[in-house]
C-alpha cells in the first residue's frame, strides 16, 4: 500500500511516498508562479521516479503554505502538525523542532508521541525566514548557496541595524561601500535571522534534543549562528527539507489503515 505526503512550500514542493508506512521515495520540485500547475508536475514526476501509478496511492495528505492548492489531496494538515509527526519518526528523542523555510519560520515543542505541546510561528514577514538571506545574497551579488560557506570565514562581528529585508538590503550595500568584507556581512546577515528565530524558539521553551529542519538547514552559516546563539548543538536529520512531507505521508498512512 502506498501513501503520499506533499508539502507545498513557497519556493519548493516536496513529495514523500511511503510503502506500508515506510519511506519509499521522495521528490523535490520548484514551486513556480502557478502553484496548482507546479503541484501537478511535482506529483507526476515523483510517481514516475518511484515507478508507481496514481491509482496505487491510497491516500494523499497535503501540508505547507499551498496545501489548499492540491486538488487530489484527501486531507490538509498544518505545517506544525506535519513537522511534529515527521520529526518524531526520524528522531524519536526530539522535543524542540525548528523549521526554517523560504517564507516562514516556526518552532515546535512536542512530546514523545509527536504530539504538539507548544508552537510559535514567524510568517508574512521576510525578516524571519529564508527570504531574508536570499535578498541579502542578491545585494552581495552572491549565489544563495555561497552565503553559508562565506559566513564561516568571517573574522569580526558587524551589527545589522535594519530589521526589514528591504531596508537591510540598503544597509548591506552601504557596508560593502565602507569596505566591510563579504564574509563579515554574510555572518551579520545570518546572525540577524538566527537571533529572530531564537527568540521565537525561547517562546516555546528549549528542551533537548533540538532538531533543525526546512530548506534553510542546508545553510551552514545560519546553522553556526543558530548554535552559537542557542549555546547548544542542533541536530539536522537526513533529508531535513522533507520532514514536513514525511509527516504528512505518515498521517496519510494512519488515515488509510
Amino acid at each position: 500500500m502506498f501513501n503520499v505526503g506533499i508539502d507545498v512550500g513557497a519556493k519548493t514542493i516536496k513529495v514523500v511516498i511511503l510503502r506500508d508506512g515506510q519511506p519509499f521515495a521522495q521528490y523535490k520540485g520548484l514551486a513556480g508562479m502557478d502553484t496548482a500547475e507546479s503541484v501537478e508536475q511535482a506529483y507526476t514526476e515523483a510517481l514516475k521516479e518511484a515507478g508507481i501509478s496514481r491509482d496505487q496511492v491510497k491516500r494523499v495528505v497535503s501540508t505547507g503554505v499551498g496545501r489548499k492548492e492540491v486538488p487530489f489531496s484527501d486531507e490538509e494538515v498544518t505545517e506544525v502538525g506535519a513537522d511534529s509527526k515527521g520529526i518524531i519518526f526520524v528522531m524519536p528523542n526530539c522535543r524542540t523542532c525548528i523549521d526554517v523555510g523560504a517564507e516562514e519560520g516556526r518552532a515546535i515543542r512536542c512530546d514523545d508521541g509527536g504530539k504538539v505541546r507548544d508552537f510559535a510561528v514567524n510568517e508574512k514577514c521576510a525578516a524571519g525566514a529564508g527570504s531574508f538571506v536570499e535578498s541579502m545574497s542578491r545585494a552581495l551579488e552572491l549565489k544563495l548557496h555561497e552565503m553559508g560557506e562565506l559566513s564561516l570565514k568571517a573574522t569580526r562581528t558587524v551589527p545589522m541595524n535594519a530589521q526589514c529585508a528591504v531596508f537591510a538590503e540598503s544597509e548591506v550595500v552601504s557596508l560593502i561601500h565602507s569596505d566591510t568584507t563579504k564574509e563579515d556581512i554574510a555572518r551579520s546577515v545570518h546572525d540577524a535571522i538566527a537571533s529572530r528565530i531564537i527568540s521565537m524558539v525561547r517562546r516555546v521553551g528549549i528542551e533537548p534534543e533540538i532538531a533543525l529542519i526546512g530548506g534553510v538547514s542546508h545553510n551552514v552559516g545560519f546553522v553556526e549562528c543558530l548554535e552559537r546563539g542557542l549555546e547548544t548543538k542542533v541536530t539536522i536529520p537526513d533529508n531535513a527539507e522533507f520532514i514536513g512531507a514525511l509527516g504528512a505521508a505518515l498521517l496519510a498512512y494512519e488515515g488509510s489503515k
Binding site: 508562479m33 514577514c125 529585508a165
Partner: peptide, 18 residues
C-alpha cells in the same frame, strides 16, 4: 495580499506573468 514588500514584489511579478 502580502504586506511584506519582499513578498508583495513576488506577488506583483506573478500578476504580471498572469
Amino acid at each position: 495580499s502580502s504586506t511584506c514588500v519582499v513578498f508583495a514584489k513576488s506577488e506583483a511579478m506573478s500578476l504580471l506573468k498572469q
